[in-house]
Nucleic acid binder design. Sequence first.
RNA 1: GCGCCUGUAGCUCAGUAGGAUAGAGCAACUGCCUUCUAAGCAGUGGGUCAGGGGUUCGAAUCCCUUCAGGCGCGCCA
Length: 579
Amino acid sequence: MKQEVVETIRKTLELLNRQWGLDSIPDIDIEIPKNEAMGDIATTVAMGLTKILKKPPRKIAEEIVDAIKTNIIPPLPVAMLRSNGSPAPFLKGGEGGFDIFESIEIAGPGFINFRFRKEFFHQELKKLLTKEHSSLRTDTGKGMKVQVEFVSANPTGPLHVGHGRGAAVGNALCNILKAAGFEVQKEFYINDAGLQVKLLGKSVWARYLQLLGDDIPFPEDGYKGDYVESIAKEIINKKGEEYRNKSFEECGGFFTTYAYKMMLANIAKDLKDFGITFDKWQSEKELYEKGHVQNALQNLRQKELLYEKDGAMWFNSTGFGDDKDRVVIKQDGEYTYFASDIAYHKDKLDRGFDTIIDIWGADHHGYIPRIRSALAAFGLPKEKFKVILIQMVALLRRGVPVQMSKRSGEFVTLREVVDEVGADITKFIFLTRRADSHLEFDIEVAKEQSSENPVFYVQYAFARISSIFRQAEERKGQGDDEDKRQCLALLTEDEELLLIKKLLQYPMVFEGSAISCEPHRITYYLQELAGMFHSYYNKHRVISDDAGLTDARLCLCKAVQIVLKEGLNMLGVSAPERM
RNA sequence: GCGCCUGUAGCUCAGUAGGAUAGAGCAACUGCCUUCUAAGCAGUGGGUCAGGGGUUCGAAUCCCUUCAGGCGCGCCA
């Protein structure tokens, strides 16, 4: 739908440019008019040209529309036109050679509004039914390699709902990018080298001794969650009192490794049960072991971007837009967290990704400039690194905030929410907002199978259609799909054309969602589409005595189902046949 | 103090790379189930897009500023 208009405009502009003499033709912006009365699709290209051409926008729009119209008719044979030096007729987009536009009008300050003929909608609907998802996806990525790193929670405790939101967004984004022709790698970065995992190990060690009856103090700022005790108990079961009379220096390695691996396995399971898997789990520790951290710093040193000051090693990040330089090796000789992050992001580049997307909690936003400067130092253009910030989730229960405090160990885990509410609902709700927008998540409301719950609204539309098909089959054996599609011309009700139009808008929504890395656009679209279907369903009967019309309407239902399922798949949410 | 994000209907939020008369859901009110799933539909009301300047054919959107809220500003991770 978009393509036809863009092509028409582009060719027309090329033609007109013989008079205008511009160096290049501007980008052609296409939009769906807010108001149905304004047409099916519109372009603002005339307004955009006012500055360049120094003419009023409506005047330019007139020139464009005149040029389009004079080139529609007469439909001379292509060869004749070409020998004439004129462009081939470009509005015969219909497969039978019909004009695809019903009308082309100028409106407002200089919009050009296009209205398609019914035949065009029927033809496009048929394509959708035949090609299914290949007609819904755009090749935006063209095989570009993109890496998306998300969740990357410290393996020092269970995932909380905030991680869940990041997981849902990251997962959906990856689905979308893959469908949009990107080669995507989903990655989880494991902070298994720092002080935090060591502190976890120490916490488990202390609980272990306490459980065995030793009166030893719990580490300051240690992890106090119940899971720490569970791990300690498990160690007692497996190893008994083997480590009872040893200092943490002696057996800390065991406790630390055991504990974080345990937590990591938990995290992986939580994510799996949430319906999310990763292509790669990258260990920070491994970066050290393979010498990547040392190498990355060496690389910076060769570029003369490191310097020594106050007994520490600094990276000249201000040279790349950071507001202060950052320490990479501390006075005590230890690497900073930033050092391994530099190595990690360099490693991503070395692995050949064209674009790197990091999904972080919004509280890490201050970290962006330094990572950006590190990547810039290694030669990655600014626009190839993108950070998506995930805002906090405010968890509520019947409107009352549920407090989350990792310190006390009394925080609500992703698992608790998923177990109580369900994975589909949780994911969908996480995807109903822009990532960087605050999100209220009311557990009780989410659990209610009510109209307050948008996920049911969308799934219900899908299930309803499935039900219609079950009914249709019971009534009588229908012809095959190809036969039914012959009847599409019978779809002439306003609601039917609106629905088809909405279906044909999906690729634009999808493309926008991929380019902007905003999965929620699909969520909104699905709610709108489901709404239009419910409305149609209530006004018109699909199955009737009119066999042809029934077939046509079944086709329309099928198409709605295809798009609903495609969209839900992108979000990682299931499309149930029954509800 | 500096930086980033946010401020849109009573509530929760969209607003598609500056576009037309700013939208949806919820809440409130009124109707619709002996026919394909009422987890649904139809209808009604609801706005100083936080305030003020500016940029231009045109601003919720871009710039400046004020106010309010959130989050960052370690040789922590």
